[in-house]
Design a protein around this nucleic acid. Structure first.
Length: 247
DNA sequence: TGCCATGTTAAACT
DNA sequence: GAGTTTAACATGGC
């Protein structure tokens, strides 16, 4: 479920149901003070990478679906033990399951670096480049998962981006030629929008070229599966066409 | 049935 | 104190 584009879709789903509505009830087993939410008007809904942010005057509700989180509108579809937060407003109730829920101050949330969100209008590729240059010894597979640089990019996007631009996941940032590094940054955003489009069409998996694949469509060699980098996340790549530069 | 995975955090180590 | 490793969380698909 939860890479950045999936949360973007969730934001679009919830915005018309919740914005400008007053919270009538809030309950669940999240470790938060539910009483703080009662009577508060939801003023805006935003996402920052994989975080869904429901704004009231204060606090802001931060929901992160982690690996297994889910949600439901108007129907409580899961056992109470997995219900972290339910928010009831006039006419609608939204349920969030097996997720991380925290209440943050509006100031804390507004101080996020909104220019690092790959789906945002404020996305700033030059800033991403500067952050990358500051970590020369980091592998590109780890850098792509760094939410402070590419907020919203997850493991699928990582694998697909590297395959598309023909770059080996274990390249160190300092070893990647300038033009290729530009491709990393550009494709992180570009693929995220493709992910968003295909997710909306329920056709995401169909478009995977490397993730979970066994054979390279370009050179017919086997796709390698390896737990790469500091993050040791599942990485699929072709050693035939994804370039490894000398360290 | 058991294993694995679109993620993050914090504790426990070296 | 730093950097690294492990555990915890917990659901659904194969």
């Amino acid at each position: 479920m939860p890479e950045g584009p999936s949360i973007f879709i969730l934001k679009e789903l919830l915005a018309p149901l919740l914005i400008s509505k007053k919270i009538k009830k809030a309950f669940g087993n999240a470790k938060i003070d539910f009483t703080q939410l009662i009577g508060k008007k939801i003023t805006a809904i935003r996402c920052w990478g994989k975080q869904l942010l429901l704004f009231t005057e204060d606090p802001v509700i931060r929901i992160h679906l982690l690996m297994f989180g889910s949600y439901s509108v108007d129907k409580n579809t899961r056992p109470a033990s997995s219900l972290r937060l339910a928010i009831e407003v006039p006419k609608h109730i939204v349920y969030f399951y097996t997720c991380s829920v925290r209440l943050l101050t509006k100031d804390a949330v507004l101080s996020y670096d909104w220019q690092s969100d790959v789906l945002s209008n404020e996305w700033n590729p030059l800033k991403a480049r500067k952050k990358l240059k500051a970590m020369p010894k980091t592998m590109v597979c780890d850098a792509l998962l760094d939410q402070q640089i590419f907020s919203g990019v997850g493991n699928i996007i990582k694998n697909e981006v590297l395959y598309r631009i023909k770059l080996h996941p274990e390249n160190l940032i300092k070893s990647i030629p300038s033009l290729k590094l530009s491709s990393v940054i550009k494709e992180a955003r570009n693929y995220s929008f493709d992910f968003l489009k295909w997710k909306k069409e329920y056709s995401l998996k169909k478009h995977w070229l490397a993730h979970t694949k066994r054979t390279c469509l370009r050179c017919d060699l086997p796709i390698i599966k390896k737990y790469c980098g500091r993050t040791k996340r599942r990485t699929f790549f072709c050693i035939g066409c994804q370039i490894k530069y000398p360290r």
